[in-house]
């Protein structure tokens, strides 16, 4: 079966910034994304866990999207504008998709 080259971008970002990020991605031409909950983690800002969280100021989510390679730069600029001042990680990896016309 024929596959097509694409870029998989995974952004781990603070939960309170989720809607701003997804709006920025859509404005940058991302056709779709998936939001995954994050259970906990540790980093430069210390350790955290979703257990017993009552504050809306804590917690992270992962936003995953697939994008055509030629759209990557515009999409990363849009994402970075949101992520730059906040806790988060942006990773880009190569992937293959079956229906390139959907991305």
């Amino acid at each position: 079966m024929q596959t097509h080259q694409a870029k998989r971008v995974a952004i781990i970002i603070e939960q309170v910034m989720q809607s701003r990020l997804t709006t920025a991605l859509e404005d940058a031409g991302v056709t779709g994304f998936t939001i995954l909950p994050v259970l906990g983690g540790s980093g430069r800002s210390g350790a955290w866990s979703r257990e017993g969280q009552v504050s809306r100021g804590t917690g992270m989510v992962q936003v995953v999207c697939i994008i055509r390679p030629e759209r990557l730069d515009a999409m990363l600029e849009a994402a970075f504008a949101v992520v730059e001042r906040h806790i988060g990680v942006v990773t880009v990896s190569d992937c293959e998709v079956l229906r390139a016309e959907r991305f």
Partner: peptide
């Protein structure tokens, strides 16, 4: 420790 931390993460990250 519920609403203000969220606002601070957005406004004063």
């Amino acid at each position: 420790y519920i609403a203000v931390p969220a606002a601070m993460r957005v406004a004063l990250p």
